[in-house]
């Protein structure tokens, strides 16, 4: 897991938030964990395959998810229903899509898998032994949208 892999995700997330809800998040302190885990209530999980492989998780509190979904839907979210969950999942898909475009321009061609939402505190997603790098993005009045990226170069490529 190289630190350089996370910058495209942070840049993509900033661009997506600006285009989608007209807000610029502020990047917080980068953190490294030995494996992928999240302390957030709502987590969007996307897989990456291709020249980089692994997972990325977008985590946030339920309150933040409700607030972001309300902005995306243009109406207040009272309960986090299928439509609100789908908006948050699609937000993750958009950030992953824009990240893969940025990774492609750095020479890493990757495809992304459809997003899955995992609810629950202190979720550990240990599909790999790749360390995770996390970066919180602070959205004014909405809360924190936390990026966790756990990727490695495809083994055959790294060896080549």
């Amino acid at each position: 897991m190289k630190v350089e892999y996370i910058a495209p995700f942070a840049e993509a997330a900033v661009g997506v938030f600006e285009a989608l809800i007209g807000m610029t998040p502020e990047r917080g302190q980068l953190k490294v964990s030995p494996s992928m885990n999240t302390m957030q209530q709502i987590n969007v999980v996307c897989g990456l395959t291709g020249q980089l492989e692994g997972i990325v998780v977008y985590g946030m509190s339920m309150i933040t998810a409700d607030k972001i979904a309300s902005k995306m839907l243009g109406q207040p979210v009272i309960t986090f229903d299928a439509l609100a969950a789908s908006a948050i999942a699609e937000l993750g898909n958009m950030v992953s899509g824009h990240s893969s475009a940025r990774l492609a321009s750095l020479g890493y061609e990757c495809d992304i898998t459809p997003p899955t939402i995992i609810r629950g505190l202190n979720v550990s997603i240990s599909t790999t032994d790749i360390p995770a790098i996390q970066i919180p993005l602070e959205l004014p009045d909405l809360g924190v949208f936390e990026l966790s990226v756990s990727l490695r170069q495809r083994v055959s490529l790294a060896a080549a």
Binding site: N93, M94, G97, A101, A104, S105, I112
Partner: peptide, 8 residues
């Protein structure tokens, strides 16, 4: 109509 904008 997609989130993936890479040239390829």
């Amino acid at each position: 109509c997609t989130a993936m904008g890479q040239k390829n």
